[in-house]
């Protein structure tokens, strides 16, 4: 039981560290942008695929939109059209 609590604590700590990274150096250059899609908010409408000028978004097997980072030029058009604000 104590090992379980320790494991949970370590997991939570790892998760919180993800947020603690904000204090690190912050840059906002274009190369720093990485757009991701929150699948819990994505409804599979496909508006992002319609608007993408670089064929950089596709549907996965679960019909959720996925961004192909090898093609994404970070234009941001998909962010504007998403009705559920699922792209961040």
């Amino acid at each position: 039981m104590k090992a379980s609590y320790l494991l949970v604590f370590i997991t939570l700590l790892l998760m919180v560290l993800g947020f603690a990274c904000k204090q690190a150096t912050l840059t906002t250059g274009a190369t720093m942008l990485v757009y991701e899609i929150d699948h819990s908010s994505c409804n599979g409408c496909g508006e992002c695929i319609r608007v993408c000028p670089n064929d950089a978004i596709y549907f996965n097997v679960q019909s959720k939109a996925v961004i192909d980072q090898s093609k994404c030029t970070k234009c941001g058009k998909c962010v504007k059209v998403c009705p559920n604000s699922a792209i961040y």
Binding site: G18, F19, C21, A24, T25, L26, V34, D38, Y88
Partner: peptide
Amino acid sequence: LINDSCSDDKLNEVYLLSN
């Protein structure tokens, strides 16, 4: 809460992407 951060392969510094 969603947070994304990044780093190069040397893990010298960690940068914030979005939160």
